[in-house]
Simulated assay, not measured.
Amino acid sequence: MMFTYYLRKTLRDKAYIFWSLAFPILLMTCFSVTFMGPAKGEVDFKPVKSTMIRIDSGESAFADEFEGVLKNLADAEEVRKSSMGYDHAVIELIETASQEEAEKKILDKELEVLFLVNGKEETISVKVGDGANMTTLMVARSITESYRRNYTIMKDAAMTAPDKIEAVMESITNSVSVMKPKSTYLGDNENSANVYLWYFYSTIVMGMFFNVTAGINTVFDIQGNLSGYGMRTSVSPKKKSKILLSAFLARYVLSCAITFFALTVMNRFFDVPLGNRFPHIILFVLLGNLFAMSLGCVIGLFTKGDENQRDNKATALVMISVFLSGEMIVQLPGLLEKYCPIVNRINPATIMNFAFFRLVNYPTLSGFWMNMIKISLATGVFMAVSIMKLRREKYAAL
């Protein structure tokens, strides 16, 4: 009876439902619209209409070689022979006589990207239309960054090994990544994660961590000095331990159900892989939500303010932890591993993200179990502290 009551009470909590369920799914929808083409390695984009204008006079190896790269990217046969993985040209070169003509064509939507090359200063400026889509921006950025990064290598090759120029140019062409999965180092034993899928995995962890408010609400339901309902609970003839267990389990079951639902949506609707280790995924969800709620109990017991204030403090703490785990800047864990590795060792969101990543992608589970042990120990400490604090609570008057 009490379990059902607390379950209905939690379902009526609009803030809890939004942050634990609606917000993660909305975020995944945004990621899908923005990134899922690249995440799934789709190559069904149309060649981007591009042109190159030299803004300096005279001959320039920098401009000549860049023009050669563009011609290779516009040659479907060359692209097919490369290791880029596309079966069509990446760009379509449009003839233009001047910068003014090119800019007019951009306004008329006859052209999508204008490369302005200064061979003397060895710089490349890019202009795109106001309505440029994500593919256009990725093409322009990838081409220019790849060329700038590799041109120095090309110059060295020209001086020391002229016969290798063609191979260097081919390497530059192959390094253009438009719609292929992009990986980044995350500080995880020299392994990389797909940038786009990492956002989805960390969103699941974020959703679980937002359940920290469920732990705070549980504390307020039984603490006589924190809320009117807690006061009535304290003077109730029913055993306090039974009320606490019902309140905690109702929210815990609902939190786990929400996480399983979010995982199903992520896998079925957004085609994000989960692997085939379903028992381990169940353990991951159960332990992750237990950790979040136990942390919430500690915050609810040891911080000051009313229920909303403590919820806000917990949400801020979760957001900081999630930010450091790479939810917003995916390269951040790798940078922290290099300059301040202790953050990755103690940040719970990072630990959970790596556990999920290892579970889905690694052939062995040693790293997953190590992270689960860390979370289990922290959960045990939080639960023990909360229970001891609640058992010692005495009220002079209510």
Rank of each mutant, 00 (worst) to 15 (best):
T10E: 14
D56P: 06
I25S: 09
R12K: 13
K9H: 13
L27A: 12
Y6Q: 00
L7T: 00
G41D: 14
K49G: 06
S57M: 06
F23N: 06
F62H: 00
M36E: 10
S50Y: 08
K14G: 05
K9M: 11
I25K: 05
K49D: 07
F18K: 05
C30W: 10
F23W: 11
D64H: 12
K9T: 11
R54Y: 05
S32N: 14
I25D: 04
I55A: 04
E42S: 13
K49N: 08
M28I: 00
S50R: 03
F18M: 06
K46L: 15
L26C: 13
R12F: 10
A61Q: 09
K49F: 01
A61K: 09
E67G: 15
T29Y: 12
S50N: 08
F31A: 08
L21F: 12
M28E: 02
G37M: 12
K9N: 12
I17V: 14
E65K: 11
T29I: 10
E59Y: 13
F18H: 07
V48A: 09
I55R: 03
M36V: 03
A15D: 05
R12Q: 11
T51Q: 01
E65S: 12
F23G: 05
I53V: 15
Y16N: 06
Y16C: 02
L26F: 09
A22C: 11
